[in-house]
Amino acid sequence: MHSNPKKICPQIIYYLSHHPHPHHIRDKASRYLYMNHAMSELLNVPTGVPIERKRLSEIKPEWAGFFEGIKKQEERVIQKQTAVSLLITAHFGKETRLQPYIFDIHPFCNQEGELIGTIAQARQCQFFSPWDYI
């Protein structure tokens, strides 16, 4: 599910394609360069839908407003070259169940060290009750 492999090291693609957590890599304009299977399941992207060089709002138009907030944060990551963590609660997965996820977004550079966009990992936010520890 990736495009433009010249910009992304094959070892990174291999690592992310086998990683259990959702990951994606986007360019400076927030267009997808790569999305692993776990991320496509999280975002409920239909099988066979091309994601290369598209924004989330183009793949899933119903998420257009949601995408703009994330795009602003990605721009900040690129400008300041620093990571950001976002707590996002949305209807994720095939069940479209409302659930919280933490998205860690980092600057992403190619093999030459040139900043080409961002890389993100999503982790389900596990809330717990204080009663769990009693």
Score class of each variant (00 low, 15 high):
Ile105Asp: 00
Cys125Lys: 12
Arg123Thr: 13
Met1Ser: 14
Leu115Tyr: 03
Gly69Asp: 13
Glu58Trp: 03
Gln11Ala: 12
Val84Leu: 12
Cys9Met: 10
Ile13Met: 06
Asp104Pro: 00
Leu86Ala: 03
Gly93Asn: 12
Phe66Ser: 05
Ile51Thr: 09
Glu68Met: 08
Asn44Tyr: 06
Asp27His: 03
Arg97Asp: 07
Thr118Leu: 03
Ile88Tyr: 01
Arg31Asp: 02
Leu115Ala: 05
His106Phe: 15
Glu41Lys: 15
Phe66Leu: 09
Gly117Ser: 07
Ser17Lys: 11
Pro61Phe: 03
Leu115Gln: 08
Val84Arg: 04
His24Ala: 07
Pro61Glu: 04
Ile134Phe: 08
Thr118Asp: 01
Leu115Phe: 05
Pro100Asn: 10
Asp104Ala: 13
Phe127His: 11
Pro107Tyr: 06
Ile78Lys: 00
Ser40Gln: 15
Tyr101Ser: 04
Leu16Gly: 01
Lys71Tyr: 09
Glu74Leu: 04
Phe66His: 06
Val49Phe: 05
Ser129Cys: 12
Tyr15Asp: 10
Gly93Glu: 11
Tyr32Lys: 02
Ile105Ser: 00
His23Ser: 06
Gly65Ser: 12
Tyr34Ala: 05
Trp63Ala: 10
Gln11Thr: 12
Ala83Pro: 04
Ser17Gly: 11
Val45Pro: 01
Ala120Asn: 03
Arg76Val: 09
Glu95Ala: 15
Ser129Met: 10
Ile59Thr: 05
Val45Glu: 02
Ala120Pro: 00
Glu68Ser: 14
Phe128Tyr: 14
Ile8Val: 15
Phe92Ala: 02
His24Arg: 06
Gln124Met: 11
Ala29Trp: 07
Gln124Leu: 08
Phe103Thr: 06
His23Ala: 09
Phe108Asn: 01
Leu98Thr: 12
Lys94Thr: 11
Ile78Arg: 00
Lys28Met: 12
Pro10Arg: 10
Asp132Phe: 12
Lys60Trp: 02
Phe92Tyr: 13
Asp27Thr: 07
Thr96Pro: 02
Val77Ser: 02
His18Asn: 15
Cys9Trp: 09
Pro130Asn: 07
Phe108Met: 04
Cys125Thr: 08
Glu58Ile: 02
Ile102Gln: 08
Trp63Gln: 12
Leu115Arg: 04
Ser17Pro: 02
Val84Asp: 01
Gly117Cys: 05
Ile8Leu: 05
Ile119Gln: 01
Tyr14Ile: 12
Leu33Asn: 00
Pro10Ser: 15
Ser129His: 13
Ile88Thr: 03
Cys125Gly: 07
Met1Glu: 08
Gly48Ala: 06
Lys94Ala: 13
Gln79Asn: 13
Thr89Ala: 06
Asn110Ala: 05
Asp104Ser: 14
Glu58Gln: 15
Lys28Pro: 03
Gln111Cys: 14
Pro100Asp: 10
Ile102Ala: 05
Thr118Ile: 14
His23Arg: 03
Gln124Thr: 09
Lys6Cys: 11
Thr96Met: 14
Cys109Glu: 11
Asn4Met: 11
Glu74Thr: 03
Glu68Cys: 06
Gln99Met: 13
Tyr34Trp: 08
Asp27Trp: 04
Arg31Ile: 05
Thr96Glu: 15
Pro50Glu: 13
Val45Asn: 02
Ile102Pro: 00
Gln81Glu: 15
Val49Ile: 15
His23Asn: 14
Asn36Met: 04
Ile134Cys: 13
Gln121Pro: 01
Glu112Thr: 14
Ala29Val: 09
